[in-house]
Amino acid sequence: MTKAERTRHFIVEKAAPIINKKGMAGTSINDIVEATRLTKGSVYGNFESKDEICLEAFDYLAKRVGADIVMAMSRANSNKDKLFALFEYYLAVVSQENTYGCPLLNFGTEADDTNPIVKQKVNKAILATENLIAKVVRSGIEAGEFKRSFDPETFSIKAFAMIEGGMWIARLQGNNKQLQIILDSLKQEIDDYCQ
């Protein structure tokens, strides 16, 4: 990595949690300058605009979340346990201080009507997560863990939407009660499809 690439990465790494918390519109270039302790000229010497930083911040956060999910699921032996590990990952994330919620939800909500490029990136990340869930369900069906009547696509869409909604409620209410109910319901559905 060149010095310029390291500097860009450093700026994105420091800016990403701020943008995830305050939003793209709510984050000022001064917030980024303060977090990086670089000059405004140095920040703008590496990025053309705050929007460019926001785009890379989303990519950075989405990549981290994806890697964390894969890591959590990789520790499980069965496909059922992989899905349960995914659910526990989301529950742990919502419980952690300073995570500021799911970047897909945060960026997606803000970009819905205002930023088609970010909206497209969020849609791509949503589909990747749904595809991951569906892939695990399909693998479980092929391995004989799950009944053939278990619909991978329907379950993945439902699970993702329910989890994101539960995370949103948990962040707003400051407790995990609804998210836990959602995850327990999804676990029960998985158990119902086990052979």
Results as ranks from 00 to 15, higher is better:
residue 118 V to F: 02
residue 159 A to Q: 02
residue 124 K to Y: 14
residue 89 Y to Q: 08
residue 173 Q to C: 09
residue 11 I to K: 00
residue 39 T to S: 15
residue 168 W to N: 10
residue 28 S to M: 11
residue 103 P to R: 06
residue 167 M to H: 01
residue 58 F to H: 04
residue 15 A to M: 11
residue 141 I to H: 04
residue 93 V to R: 04
residue 121 K to H: 09
residue 184 D to P: 06
residue 71 M to D: 15
residue 155 F to Q: 02
residue 146 F to C: 03
residue 195 Q to R: 13
residue 81 D to Y: 01
residue 61 L to S: 00
residue 131 N to W: 13
residue 56 E to A: 08
residue 183 L to K: 00
residue 132 L to K: 13
residue 6 R to I: 02
residue 120 Q to N: 14
residue 50 K to N: 10
residue 25 A to G: 06
residue 29 I to E: 10
residue 121 K to Y: 07
residue 40 K to L: 14
residue 5 E to F: 08
residue 176 N to F: 02
residue 87 F to Q: 09
residue 193 Y to T: 03
residue 111 A to F: 06
residue 179 L to Y: 01
residue 71 M to N: 15
residue 22 K to H: 09
residue 161 A to D: 06
residue 16 A to C: 11
residue 61 L to E: 01
residue 134 A to C: 08
residue 92 A to Y: 08
residue 120 Q to R: 15
residue 79 N to H: 11
residue 190 I to A: 04
residue 115 N to A: 06
residue 136 V to C: 03
residue 4 A to R: 05
residue 156 S to C: 04
residue 34 E to W: 08
residue 105 L to R: 09
residue 108 G to Y: 03
residue 153 E to K: 15
residue 47 F to Q: 07
residue 118 V to T: 04
residue 144 G to M: 03
residue 49 S to H: 10
residue 164 E to W: 02
residue 97 E to L: 12
residue 22 K to W: 02
residue 189 E to A: 04
residue 31 D to T: 05
residue 170 A to Q: 01
residue 29 I to W: 07
residue 103 P to C: 12
residue 117 I to K: 13
residue 112 D to M: 06
residue 114 T to H: 11
residue 125 A to L: 04
residue 2 T to A: 10
residue 70 V to I: 15
residue 18 I to N: 05
residue 59 D to C: 07
residue 71 M to R: 13
residue 157 I to M: 10
residue 74 S to N: 13
residue 24 M to D: 01
residue 169 I to F: 09
residue 70 V to G: 06
residue 73 M to K: 08
residue 187 K to S: 05
residue 124 K to L: 12
residue 113 D to G: 12
residue 135 K to S: 13
residue 43 V to T: 02
residue 84 F to S: 05
residue 26 G to N: 07
